[in-house]
């Protein structure tokens, strides 16, 4: 299934957001959004992905 992950086009097998994180090797402290909507970690298992979804996976970074 073709999606956009952190701005990059990707072809993935995952059917849900939590499967996507596992497939793409994300671990540790990350937060997620799909199509510009925040998806809490507790809802990632239930969040099904669709073709063309825009997924953002972010983590802590330096800031001012």
């Amino acid at each position: 299934m073709k999606i956009v992950l952190n701005g990059e086009p990707r072809d993935v097998r995952a059917a849900t957001l939590s499967e996507l994180l596992e497939e793409c090797g994300f671990s540790g402290r990350v937060a997620t959004a799909v199509n510009e909507e925040f998806v809490p970690s507790s809802l990632r298992i239930a969040r099904k992905l669709a073709v063309g979804d825009r997924v953002e996976v972010v983590s802590p970074m330096q800031g001012g």
């Binding site: 952190n6 540790g28 402290r29 996976v57 972010v58 983590s59 802590p60 970074m61 330096q62 800031g63």
Partner: peptide, 14 residues
Amino acid sequence: VSLRRESGAGQTFW
């Protein structure tokens, strides 16, 4: 602090 797309460096910083 801020949030940016995960690139691997985030966990060490945190």
